[in-house]
């Protein structure tokens, strides 16, 4: 049995009277896709905010790759390989598509206190960025200002930026949000292709995508994990059906 790559120990987060994360203990195994599902307001994004370091938990610990990262700031966690994508597309809108990805690759190459050489002429940034965009069907859009991309393309760029940092683990916050069925299917296929290389924690409302991709699923309701198991086990779980999937 391999060591889990990400562990949370009784993670707790309140917003005033609202309990967003309730004694949540998770173990994510390396290589697979672990999906978190649950109704709106279950605390899924709050969980990703805490895992990525953008929000501090009230109590509990987070360990990543054998290291306690609870007190590490977000950028330091990224440098360890724990990288998130955003539910509301977060890209550099005034930058070209290629520059977005090249900058993320640059960020993964150590400090940027280099003041003299032109970044736009650096093949160690441009080449991998081009290759990555090619793989995501964004290759033809390299020179477009990213703010002018169609929504689905922006979602792809969002993922491309996260990937460009060379992550060990991705925290994907609704990667398919706002995508059409076709785009959604393509993204599902792409993420499936990353399986094995990069561990993924996936939050997604598109249940087709979730059940197609996930090795394990945790169901979150009011910040509490009510069930964790294989997709088949979750589908069969009576409590989950009542709480979330909708009992037919």
């Amino acid at each position: 049995m391999p060591e889990p790559i990400l562990v949370t120990e009784s993670l707790h987060k309140n917003f005033a009277a609202l309990i967003a994360t309730d004694s949540l203990s998770l173990e994510i195994m390396p290589g697979g896709i672990h999906a978190i599902i649950g109704p709106n307001g279950a605390g899924k994004t709050t969980l990703i905010n805490q895992l990525s370091g953008m929000m501090k938990p009230d109590s509990g610990r987070i360990r990543f790759a054998g290291q306690d990262v609870t007190d590490l700031a977000a950028p330091a966690r990224v440098r360890l390989g724990l990288v998130r994508s955003f539910q509301i597309t977060s890209i550099l809108r005034d930058f070209s598509v290629l520059d977005n990805v090249a900058l993320a690759i640059q960020a993964g190459q150590g400090h940027s206190f280099r003041f003299w050489a032109k970044a736009a002429l650096d093949p160690t940034l441009r080449e991998p960025a081009r290759a990555l965009l090619e793989g995501l069907d964004l290759g033809a859009r390299n020179d477009v200002r990213s703010g002018e991309l169609a929504h689905g393309e922006q979602r792809q760029l969002e993922i491309a930026m996260a990937l460009a940092t060379n992550p060990k683990m991705l925290l994907l916050d609704e990667p398919m949000a706002g995508m059409g069925p076709e785009e959604s299917a393509r993204m599902t296929e792409y993420l499936a292709g990353l399986k094995g290389r990069i561990t993924m924690l996936l939050i997604e409302h598109d249940m087709d995508a979730v059940f197609a991709l996930a090795d394990r699923i945790t169901v979150l309701v009011y910040g509490r994990a009510i069930a964790t198991g294989t997709p088949d086990a979750i589908r069969a779980d009576g409590e989950v059906r009542r709480a979330y999937l909708g009992d037919a």
Binding site: P75, V78, V83, F95, L103, A107, S112, A164
Partner: peptide, 27 residues
């Protein structure tokens, strides 16, 4: 030289979207 360097790209990226810059590992 500075604004076109790696450092310059980081500075411009921060203006464009600071949260995103933190999200790719830039302090």
């Amino acid at each position: 030289r500075i604004v076109n360097s790696r450092f310059g790209m980081v500075i411009r990226g921060i203006k464009s979207n600071e949260t995103r810059m933190e999200g790719i590992g830039i302090s």
